[in-house]
Computed example of a mutant assay.
Amino acid sequence: MSYDPPRPAGRLLLTPQDSEAPARTLRLRRLGLGQQPEPALDAFADRLAELTGTPYAMVNFLDGERQFFAGLHTPEGGRAARGGKPAVGRRLPREYGYCPHVVVRRRALALEDVGDYPRFACNPLVDEYGIRSYLGAPLTDSTGMVLGTVCVADLAPRPWGKAGLETIKSTAADLAVRLEARTLL
């Protein structure tokens, strides 16, 4: 039996159904990913945050119920955020954020201002963490399975542009190859 957290009245959360979640969970276990923080992925997230100039960068693996940030860069370094907002932790429910959309769509997603998109503006990340822009790309392995995402987020609207989209897509593709190669050693 799983626990479904209560949803605020009057708020429609539009998290997409993920029919590949059971197969993804098995694949992640076989690869040894998505269960614990990984220092190498934290360092990867740090470099990605620096490259994009964003306060948040993540390497995110998803299963049927949650998201797990095996690589995480936050401005707080894990401490409570400024302005009374909570710090982003390693785990979030599936209905939080935009990565589940990237995984199901199997395509990169650039939201320059989440407030411009009714479907995304009501996401709990906006109210609880102050996220205003997002850029993410799928981590697709050699079998064609989307394992998760590489993403960045900001507290202010950002014009990601074509360069930002190409950066996140190429970064995700490179990391997917590296993740798979490490299991073959």
Rank of each mutant, 00 (worst) to 15 (best):
L33V: 03
L33K: 01
L33P: 04
Q36F: 02
P37F: 07
P37H: 03
D42E: 10
D46V: 10
R47N: 05
A49L: 09
E50N: 12
E50K: 06
T52A: 14
T54P: 04
P55K: 10
Y56C: 07
Y56F: 12
A57E: 11
A57W: 10
M58W: 05
M58F: 12
V59H: 07
N60E: 10
L62S: 07
G64E: 13
Q67C: 13
F68V: 11
F68A: 10
G71V: 10
L72S: 04
L72E: 06
H73G: 03
H73V: 06
T74E: 03
E76W: 14
E76S: 15
G77C: 12
G77K: 13
G78A: 12
R79N: 14
A81K: 09
R82V: 08
R82N: 09
G83Q: 07
K85C: 09
K85W: 00
P86R: 05
V88F: 06
V88S: 03
G89Y: 09
R91K: 15
L92W: 02
P93G: 04
R94L: 13
R94V: 05
R94T: 06
E95T: 11
E95V: 11
Y98P: 05
C99F: 10
H101R: 14
V102S: 06
V104M: 01
V104E: 00
R105C: 12
R106P: 12
R107E: 15
R107Q: 15
A108Y: 04
A108C: 13
L109F: 14
L109Q: 15
A110F: 07
A110D: 09
L111F: 05
L111T: 05
P118A: 00
F120A: 07
A121R: 04
A121Q: 05
V126G: 08
D127E: 13
D127M: 09
E128K: 11
G130S: 08
R132Q: 01
R132G: 02
Y134S: 01
G136Y: 01
G136I: 02
T140Y: 01
D141S: 03
D141H: 02
G144M: 03
G144L: 02
M145K: 00
V146R: 05
V146E: 06
G148D: 07
T149P: 02
C151G: 07
C151N: 14
C151I: 08
V152T: 06
V152K: 00
A153D: 02
A153M: 15
A153I: 04
D154W: 03
L155G: 08
L155M: 06
L155C: 10
A156E: 14
G161D: 13
G161I: 10
G164S: 04
G164T: 07
L165H: 11
E166I: 09
E166P: 05
I168R: 02
I168K: 04
S170I: 15
S170T: 15
